[in-house]
Simulated assay, not measured.
Amino acid sequence: MTQLRRIKRSVVKRAIYSVLIWLLSFLWFVPIFWMLTTSLKPTTVAVTENPPRWIPNPMTFENYAAVARAAGGINVGRSVWNSVIVAAIATVAGLLVAVPAAYALARLRFPGQRIIFWTYVAILAFPSVLFLVPNFFIINRLGLMNSFAALILPGLGGTFGVFMLRQYMLGIPRELEEAALIDGCSRLRILTRIVVPLIRPALVTLGIMTFLGSWNSFLWPLIVLTSSSKFTLPIALVRFSAGWGDPYRGIGASMAAAFISVAPVLVIFVAFHKYLMRGVSLGSIGK
């Protein structure tokens, strides 16, 4: 009887968890679906229809055409391309810096190693907004204002990425590296041929997080960018919505531009969600 009760409790718990997950998924999906349907409605219908209709009838793509022809004075298409360039370079460069840094903290022994590591841990406790002023002065002194480099350089070697990869690397058996050292492999070859393939889930996770963080960044680009030709998508969305003057007049086009910004995030999450979950769960385990 005791075992039967445990089975029943387990089934009930799973059922409750499933209901909660589906409920949260529904609450998360509804605003995105409403954004999509509103972007496919004529502007007059989107604003005046009462009660609002979930399925657009008639359906139109005029709002996406308005985004494509830079209505409101903001070229959203160019801003999408700018965001893709910045996010892609920031992701690749961030991984190239974080991997060797994490390996050095996880495996090498050198003076000040523990101080550097605990400094990284301490930095994680501070909100990123505290670093806006020093980053601004550094970028300004380097003459990189209003450039893509100003968006990419401050994020290289992010503390969270180095910390996560280090914790992941600590779970790799040292015997693999010791055997490679006996065979004459250099540290660089061990890193590229043994360590990197074993931490692939963590690399994918960190790559996704870095890409999405750069893609959604608003405050820092707003500070360092002054030219509309360099605007990334979050800034362009705000300027695009404000460029209509009357918010009701441009609500359909604004929803279309917002859905364009959300679509890549949805595609990335659906395509890599297994790596994302696996990397987060395993990367948090270290010796």
Score class of each variant (00 low, 15 high):
111 P>G: 15
98 A>D: 01
112 G>V: 08
187 R>M: 15
102 A>P: 00
186 S>P: 07
88 A>Q: 07
111 P>V: 09
111 P>Y: 09
162 V>A: 12
189 R>A: 10
94 G>M: 05
180 A>Y: 02
178 E>C: 11
133 V>F: 12
162 V>E: 14
165 L>H: 03
180 A>E: 02
137 F>G: 07
116 I>Y: 13
96 L>A: 14
133 V>I: 13
181 L>A: 14
158 G>Q: 05
149 A>D: 07
123 I>W: 02
135 N>V: 13
147 S>C: 06
121 V>C: 07
189 R>P: 06
178 E>H: 10
116 I>C: 12
167 Q>P: 04
132 L>Y: 01
158 G>H: 03
82 N>H: 00
134 P>M: 09
182 I>H: 03
177 E>Y: 08
137 F>M: 03
181 L>C: 07
183 D>K: 00
99 V>G: 03
178 E>I: 01
192 T>K: 09
161 G>W: 05
89 I>W: 00
149 A>W: 15
83 S>M: 01
179 A>M: 11
123 I>T: 04
100 P>D: 00
143 G>W: 00
129 V>N: 15
144 L>I: 04
186 S>F: 04
95 L>A: 10
132 L>R: 13
145 M>E: 03
104 A>P: 01
160 F>T: 14
102 A>Y: 06
87 A>T: 01
171 G>T: 07
92 V>M: 05
105 L>C: 06
122 A>S: 11
103 Y>K: 08
148 F>Q: 12
171 G>H: 03
117 F>K: 12
163 F>Q: 02
164 M>V: 11
168 Y>D: 04
139 I>P: 15
142 L>I: 09
84 V>S: 08
106 A>G: 15
151 L>M: 12
83 S>Q: 04
120 Y>E: 15
156 L>A: 01
95 L>R: 02
142 L>R: 07
187 R>Q: 13
91 T>E: 01
122 A>N: 06
98 A>Y: 05
112 G>A: 00
145 M>H: 05
163 F>M: 09
145 M>P: 05
102 A>M: 01
121 V>K: 11
90 A>H: 14
141 R>I: 15
157 G>L: 01
160 F>K: 09
166 R>L: 08
164 M>T: 02
156 L>M: 09
152 I>N: 08
179 A>F: 08
191 L>G: 05
161 G>S: 07
117 F>L: 03
89 I>V: 06
85 I>S: 02
101 A>L: 10
125 A>T: 12
87 A>F: 03
114 R>C: 12
180 A>K: 02
158 G>K: 00
164 M>C: 02
189 R>G: 14
121 V>M: 14
131 F>E: 07
190 I>P: 04
184 G>N: 12
162 V>D: 14
110 F>G: 09
117 F>P: 12
140 N>C: 11
132 L>G: 10
84 V>P: 01
192 T>Q: 14
176 L>N: 04
174 R>E: 06
96 L>I: 09
107 R>T: 06
161 G>V: 13
180 A>T: 05
138 I>F: 14
98 A>N: 13
116 I>M: 13
99 V>M: 06
145 M>V: 15
118 W>S: 08
